[in-house]
Write a protein that binds this DNA or RNA. Structure first.
Lengths: 355, 355
DNA sequence: ATGAAAGCGCTAACAT
DNA sequence: ATGTTAGCGCTTTCAT
């Protein structure tokens, strides 16, 4: 691999000149010289070593994306929005899959810090682990000191108000989870449901709590007593939805609808119910959350909350770019609109009036 | 961020000593000194700069994974196998999503080259573009020169025999696509189908051609004439499957089964058929390829070829690790076994005997 | 308009 | 057992 010195020699100039040509430096360089340099670059197939650049604190045009599980369609969509947009702007995004393991997240963050990433996107919802959070906070601080923009997608606990003036803040892009969960719950209540099961997300995630909150608020608003036995502790997986189905079936008084915190849980519940011979939506309604693509293709197509995942990714990366350009620390909180997607998995309860 | 010099000062030693302690160098260092260094490292929260290390050609414990579309469940599963295994071995994998754009792939490859990745995994099937292939080949050569192991998953055209002694070779891990496609086609033929539609994958991918080959061989073996009008040019997307459905419906003589090159096409076809009121499998059978998880949950559950995606990822990364340890260039071709998963989307044609 | 030299953080070769 | 020095490839002063 050629280095800048070889290029310089071949062009009969100094490395400095090569550097100037390649970085469109403000220093003017003779157009003839420039030609020779460019030619040498081409023939030697020279690509500047970003490692060396990074060591000097120069832009790397690399953006790190931290994600818990990139194979989860939810994140996959967000990540797609991120990479597409970044690419259009000339940035390369490297996806760091933490498998939701705090230690791995930290390792990646450290790597990105040292590799002089030009920006960091937390695509995963935050892990709600105080000690870990502190460590992340610290690294984010380091980024901040280097003026590397950080943005958190979904509801990540990065910009909790702190006392210190060194307060770490990150721009956020998310939907209003509480409101969205409330909307869906109210829709179900409006349909006539009174006994509505809720499948919770993993307790370590902030989003889970928010969605539960919305569910509770809707009940309260409609004077329906909150029954803790109707909340099943899921973990955003298909399997937990399957288990939830067992939990909700044959309850007395009967549960007539289930609201899952994400679509995979909803799908699991749907299949669990089917296995038990419960007709959806005739005997029980099911609603999900996120609106991943495949929901349309199951039978019946699932009602869900549409989260603009792709858009979240796009706006996230735009925040990074904006921050880079303005050279300011931007701490903007963007709330994107959500909507209900009513499909065939929800209808009024079997015997109108409930109970 | 602390650097090695600060640590050295604080411990009252030279940077070299710090380096030796941190890298478990064979150089012996006084256990007392070691303690002091370790303490300084801890208090200063020192993490060695991998950029600087990389510049010196030292191991980075970073492995680059090149993938066309990480949100595709097929790749997602492979990538998962890769990251899990790599993590257990102390390696960090960075996912480079090319969106199947050759230029992006090249950019990533260059970045990885310079960032001194310790290994490269091509998780995508190869792009069959000669000029691009040459450029990739060249970069792979550079990796080889640096003794950075490269492995290609699926059927990537990286180790085409070449004349030069500098012959670029990469280990491969894949299934036998030709045989697998042949197996499925023969299964359909065995069921009594004679007019079997085939949905092709994108023409730029080698895997597509292989699977078509298998389909053709099965026909030939069973003395069924190959009818080009029964091959629909898909591109591995749901939409192309949808279009294929329109293509195959109402043909004379009727098509009684469709074999899609991947599961998403199969799903698209299934839904297209449903929309047109064609019963699956009663009027038409459908078979897919890959065995992505969601196939089980559609109605009817789809028959498909099971590709051990996770295992492919695991074995791929193991090749990398093996090559690193043996310090040899390993060019092993691993063929993993496939199998047919018979579900409910296939059955004998409506009027036995066909035609 | 161009170049020489210093230095980013680290490690390996070479002292001591 | 420990330290000194040089240098990885690049950019950035500071000359010329």
């Amino acid at each position: 691999m050629a280095n800048i010195i070889e290029v310089a020699k071949r062009a009969g100039v100094s490395p400095t000149t090569v550097s100037r040509v390649l970085n469109n430096s403000s220093h003017s360089v003779n157009s003839e010289t420039r030609e020779r340099v460019l030619e040498a670059v081409k023939t030697l197939n020279f690509v500047p070593n970003p490692l060396a650049k990074g060591l000097l604190g120069v832009e790397t045009h690399l953006i790190g994306v931290i994600v818990g599980d990139a194979s989860d369609p939810y994140y996959a969509n967000i990540v797609k929005g991120i990479s597409e947009t970044a690419q259009n702007e000339g940035y390369l995004t490297i996806i760091c899959n933490t498998d939701r393991i705090p230690e791995i997240e930290l390792r990646f963050l450290n790597a990105l810090l040292h590799y002089a990433a030009d920006g960091i996107v937390f695509a995963s919802g935050g892990l709600n682990l105080p000690e870990h959070q502190d460590q992340v906070q610290e690294i984010v601080n380091s980024f901040k000191k280097r003026h590397v923009p950080v943005v958190a997608l979904g509801n990540r606990n990065l910009n909790v108000p702190q006392v210190s003036i060194d307060d770490v803040q990150a721009a956020q892009v998310s939907i209003d989870d509480v409101q969205a969960a409330q909307d869906m719950t109210e829709y179900l209540i409006g349909l006539g449901h009174r006994r509505i099961g809720f499948i919770l997300g993993p307790s370590t995630m902030i989003t889970s709590q928010r969605r539960l909150e919305g569910y509770q608020q809707a009940l309260e608003k409609n004077q329906i007593a909150f029954d803790p036995s109707l909340v099943f502790n899921g973990d955003f997986t298909f399997e937990s939805g399957l288990q939830a189905a067992s939990h909700f079936v044959d309850r007395q008084p009967p549960v007539t609808a289930v609201f899952a915190s994400n679509d995979r849980e909803a799908m699991g519940c749907l299949f669990g119910l089917k296995q038990k011979g419960i007709a959806v939506p005739e005997q029980m309604s099911i609603a999900g959350f996120d609106d991943i693509e495949m929901l349309q293709y199951v039978n019946p197509p699932l009602t869900t909350v549409c989260v603009p995942m792709h858009e979240i990714g796009v706006r996230g990366i735009m925040q990074i770019l904006k921050a880079k350009n303005s050279k300011d620390v931007i701490v903007e909180n963007i709330r994107l609109p959500h909507s209900l997607v009513i499909r065939e998995s929800t209808q009024p309860p079997p015997n109108q009036g409930g109970q």
